[in-house]
């Protein structure tokens, strides 16, 4: 398959006072023009994978990889200067909570327009027109009014739509969505996902959806990677999730409440052998 992104043996580790913590351990995967879900518990390394691709691991962390190939270039060996041309313009990322990911003292319209102006020679006027158009596309009514609002004046759902508009305005090839709906009301989660879905389809992008929500990932993505302890335990098509073989994936599925199954929910048991490498799916 024609891939957009090819990650091989990506590792991220952090220097902490208690010693080195390996957040991501030698994971490899490819992404085409598809919707790839990465699921796992907190601390499984899914968010750090997204950040490492963009070269935005925090200062106390170190990243190593055989390669992160994107459009013929290796992102893991790129200079910061070249990396800035990739960020936003080619690969973008949406974060969990718009209350924190939007700058509280800037008008939301200016923040979106800025994302456009960084990578184009557009004038202020053009950037503003593009921003309004973009706000309309993420189904915000009265876009010219919303343009002048500050982040504390918009709701969570609208904030996340603004984030989507901001990250998609330079028309990137890949979008990483890191728990894009986890901080939102259940009622608006679906709206946000459907907007995201429309936009990804229209622009023909590759999407990496990072989530802890198995149901959401299986219904929304084409393919799913299951991460645990910094490793990919299983990679399968979303439609096959219910037939997952790995005991961890099975365990996760059994933890979900269901209308058909009655009685107590299972508790996840973990086996250290999973992380020793070469664990063969029975």
């Amino acid at each position: 398959m024609q891939y957009l992104l090819n990650v091989e043996k990506l590792s991220v580790s952090f220097e902490t006072p208690k010693g080195v913590v390996d957040a991501v351990r030698e994971i490899s995967f490819t992404l085409g023009k598809e919707r790839l879900g990465i699921v796992g518990e907190s601390g499984s390394g899914k968010s750090q994978t997204g950040r490492a691709i963009l070269g935005l691991t925090s200062k106390n962390g170190s990243v190593s990889a055989n390669h992160i190939l994107f459009d013929g270039a290796d992102l893991s060996r790129m200079t910061e200067r070249d990396m800035r041309k990739i960020r936003g313009a080619r690969i973008s990322m949406i974060m969990q909570d718009p209350r924190y990911s939007l700058n509280p003292v800037m008008r939301v319209g200016e923040q979106i327009a800025e994302a456009f102006r960084v990578h184009t020679r557009a004038s202020r006027r053009q950037a503003k027109d593009r921003t309004i158009e973009m706000l309309n596309r993420v189904k915000i009514r009265e876009a010219d009014k919303v343009y002048n609002l500050f982040p504390h004046e918009v709701s969570g759902g609208m904030g996340q739509r603004i984030m989507i508009a901001m990250m998609l305005i330079p028309e990137p090839d890949i979008l990483i969505a890191d728990e894009p709906t986890s901080a939102l009301d259940v009622t608006v989660q679906l709206q946000i996902l459907s907007i995201l879905d429309d936009m990804v389809r229209e622009q023909g992008m590759g999407l990496i959806l990072i989530s802890h929500d198995l149901n959401l990932v299986s219904s929304f993505c084409d393919r799913v990677l299951v991460m645990y302890g910094g490793q990919i335990l299983e990679s399968l098509n979303a439609s096959d999730l219910n037939n997952a073989k790995h005991p961890y994936t099975r365990g996760l599925l059994n933890c979900l409440p269901s209308l058909e199954r009655q009685g107590e929910l299972a508790v996840l048991t973990r086996d250290p052998k999973w992380l020793e490498g070469g664990y063969n799916i029975p």
Partner: peptide
């Protein structure tokens, strides 16, 4: 986190 957002924008 908005600082991370600004960096993601490039």
């Amino acid at each position: 986190e908005y600082v991370l957002t600004a960096r993601v924008k490039g």
